[in-house]
Design a protein around this nucleic acid. Structure first.
Lengths: 296, 296
DNA sequence: GACCATTGATAGAGAACTTCTATCAAGTCA
DNA sequence: TGACTTGATAGAAGTTCTCTATCAATGGTC
């Protein structure tokens, strides 16, 4: 039963029988049979079928909710017993927004010192994707903005406040400047994140509030791409202060704070709202609290 | 996996491999193998074994919590789908304290009118047993006292307030009385419920508060037994007003209110605290709310 | 409009797993 | 000590699962 529910979750999430089967490590006929059995056991249709996957029925949607819960609880039970057996161990899957990627080390490093048997797997994802991954049980926790867009059913722990800087080639547009207004950005040739990234939406929003429009020359979903286009392509970009200072020093770039207004956003750790959480996730939340206290 | 968890729940509750197997509808070797597999899959011992069942290990206790949750959710999912398929139907298992048995009809009758495909199975149990049955998924809801002893993790809906009367043979000890003090009860030859019943504990408590001791001639765990000993054996007893009046009229007995103090206790419907509840339980809770409103 | 790729269902064989009956070993109670 | 209770074990029979191979339907493309 539980493996059928796992298949069903994979199907709902891939929207494709073949790929769902691959994700579950079975062949496509096996997955088809599994879904069919689930439908027979529950006595309802779960999936609209033509010649291809066409979405879930209303009952399927409800069963998906139950399935996520039941599978999550089953995994949590397994995790808890593995911890009872051999202490905190295994893999923690962490989904992180690109602009926070460089700061997760502040979380993972002390955590790994405390729990050496835990391995991390870190995914760079948009904030929306992070929440979806938590729902679909594809990540154990995430790092994202806490204060800007709705989070849904998650438990959150603040980590730090993010401020912003403009970054441009040394001696270029920012030469001699102590700070830059958000409106002034529009005069520069900009490289910004793609609009599916929350950071980009915040940048656009702050520019709009300052009366300017964000009209980037180049968009990318990776910070590295932005920075290389500053160093090699002569563009300017906007990054969280820590990142901007890091690249500023490393790449010999000019980095100045963005002001008017001096925008600030809260970054934090999020995990599925489940009680109790798996031991590893609970420990990571405690680490986040510790870090936030040290921060203040 | 889920059937193994069901076996484990049955084992924890019967404390006996053979009886647990019977409860699950399998043979004892099958259940033994199921528990062993569960232990292997989780990698921990769950049961202390000598030559017989000797209780759960700490890990077993934790797994029992998870198992109850996972099995309850699985059943709720099945119930919900069955309701989607054929409307509210199936069996509602209701565990009721003996003194409330005669009043559940006020709950079940309008409910059955509204949902004719629901069948009821009603168990007379002590309040402690009711809570255990809810935990072990052996009852869907219960009717018990809400205000006297701790309830644990349940959702409750008040039904009505219970008051108490003394009941004795016509023309006997209560002849001509308008009321009776709790202390005066000790002068009568009493038939009372057994001390595992919460009603009995309340009666003893109120007598003690009035400075008297409950020293019954006869104890039983059934109201019928008490009443027949009033009619046939010349004893007196204490019953909730509705019951006392009912038997008073039917059996030609004297029933008078107990005062000093005029004790009152709250009876209500309880169901496992789960979100969402099964459709049938949710409907029963609504019925209880309706009834309580009509009551006031 | 013909062709090819994609998608999911179906059939049949072999493997894996479950459950049963029968039996045994270790305690327990009288 | 002897009968009984309790749970584990062994082996056979049946069920279920999963795979490979294949097909039908559809959709996009040239």
């Amino acid at each position: 039963m539980i493996d059928k529910l796992e298949m069903f979750i994979a199907l709902a999430h891939t929207r494709h029988f073949g790929r769902a089967a691959e994700e579950c490590g079975v062949t496509q006929p096996t997955l088809s049979a599994g879904i069919k059995q689930l439908e027979e056991q529950l006595g309802v249709m779960l999936v609209w079928r033509g010649t291809r996957y066409q979405g879930l029925t209303p009952e399927g949607q409800r069963v998906l909710d139950w399935a996520r819960r039941i599978v999550a609880d089953t995994r949590a039970m397994r995790e808890e017993m593995r911890t009872a057996r051999q202490g905190l161990s295994g893999v923690l899957r962490l989904a992180v927004i690109p602009t926070a990627l460089s700061t997760v080390t502040a979380l993972t490093t002390p955590f790994r010192a405390r729990h050496p048997d835990i391995r991390f797997r870190i995914f760079s994802r948009s904030s929306a994707e992070i929440l979806a991954m938590l729902e679909d049980l594809e990540a154990d926790a995430g790092v994202t903005y806490l204060d800007s867009e709705p989070l849904g059913r998650v438990r959150a722990a603040p980590l730090y406040r993010e401020r912003y800087m403009a970054l441009a080639p040394a001696g270029g547009a920012l030469a001699g400047r102590e700070s830059l207004g958000w409106a002034e950005l529009s005069a520069l040739p900009l490289a910004l994140l793609t609009p599916d990234m929350q950071n980009r939406r915040l940048v656009s929003q702050h520019m709009a509030e300052a009366g300017a429009e964000a009209d980037p020359v180049l968009e990318a979903n990776s910070v590295i791409t932005l920075v290389t286009h500053v160093t090699e392509g002569g563009l300017a970009t906007v990054l969280p202060s820590r990142l901007a200072e890091l690249f500023g020093r490393m790449g010999g770039l000019d980095a100045v704070p963005l002001v008017a207004p001096e925008a600030e956003h809260l970054i934090g750790l999020v995990a599925p709202e489940r009680d109790p959480a798996t031991p590893a996730v609970a420990a990571l939340m405690r680490e986040a609290q510790r870090l936030a206290e040290a921060e203040v």
